[in-house]
């Protein structure tokens, strides 16, 4: 009894210590974002601000391009997700519920494409976009991610578990195959779609690699790219607004995660299949 209490106490203590380390950058970010300037630049250890300084947020939101970065983030992430679903869902449906010549070949392509990390394709895509003159555009940020082998794979797994009768019934009811995809298959696949959406949104909201390559125009910067522009400009004396900006940029996903933890964890864990 005493032994188990003791071991409980130790493990709880360790878990709290670990959690403190995990929270450290979050707390420091919050703290700096709300600290008045003089407290930021004091060398005394002071974890929390003495009073809340909202001006850092005002500066970040009005005097910098942070709102623009957020908007770019929404456009790019939304665009990527919309196109991914538009392309992947019909293909997955055909792979799961139709018999056609080349089906095995297409599915083989999907499995092979799962093996290719995006970094590998960056150079040729950059070359192609440069030739086509579409670097520095929303299109350049969205297009390379439209093919999603992972999405096709995920949806196909889901669709192949649905009874074929359901689709035959829809055919008898007069739905075209396209209508079946969007009126029957897709609504039924909403759980899979949610998991995929969470995975896709997190991955592309947080991506730095491609935006760093494909755009040089600060007006097209996605949130991670944008915050680097901001940091590189401020040269060390606007720490408060910089932290406020970092906070603003992280907030959407963190809040979404806190609101829908189970879905988030599932979605991101499913992404592990892709690696």
């Amino acid at each position: 009894m005493i032994r188990s209490f003791f071991s409980r106490a130790v493990s709880t203590l360790l878990l709290f210590a670990g959690a403190a380390v995990i929270l450290l950058p979050f707390v420091w970010m919050l703290s700096l974002a709300f600290k008045p300037r003089d407290e930021i630049f004091s060398s005394r250890v002071q974890l929390l601000p003495s009073r809340l300084e909202w001006n850092n947020f005002v500066v970040a939101l009005t005097e910098t391009d942070v709102p623009l970065f957020l908007w770019n983030g929404f456009v790019v992430v939304g665009g990527i997700l919309a196109f991914q679903i538009l392309f992947a869902v019909p293909c997955s449906y055909a792979l799961a519920q139709r018999r056609f010549r080349g089906r095995t070949f297409v599915f083989g392509l999907v499995l092979a494409a799962l093996l290719v990390p995006f970094h590998v394709t960056a150079i040729p895509i950059f070359l192609g976009f440069a030739k086509a003159g579409i670097l520095n555009s929303y299109g350049a940020l969205i297009l390379p991610f439209v093919p999603t082998a992972f999405g096709i794979f995920l949806f196909r797994q889901f669709f192949s578990q649905l009874p074929p009768d359901l689709f035959d019934a829809a055919r008898v009811d007069g739905l075209s195959e396209t209508a079946i995809v969007w009126r029957i298959a897709f609504p039924l696949a909403l759980p899979a779609a949610t998991a995929f959406a969470i995975f896709s949104i997190t991955a592309h909201w947080n991506d730095l690699f491609w935006p760093l390559i494909a755009t040089t125009d600060p007006h097209l910067a996605t949130p991670p790219r944008g915050i680097l522009y901001f940091r590189d400009q401020e040269s060390g004396d606007d720490v408060g607004p910089l932290m406020a900006a970092a906070l603003i940029i992280t907030a959407p996903l963190v809040i979404a995660f806190l609101l829908a933890q189970r879905k988030f964890t599932q979605g991101l864990a499913a992404g592990g299949l892709k690696g």
Partner: peptide
């Protein structure tokens, strides 16, 4: 879930 670049800045 947090944006790694923003957290790196932190």
């Amino acid at each position: 879930a947090a944006t790694l670049v923003a957290m790196s800045v932190a």
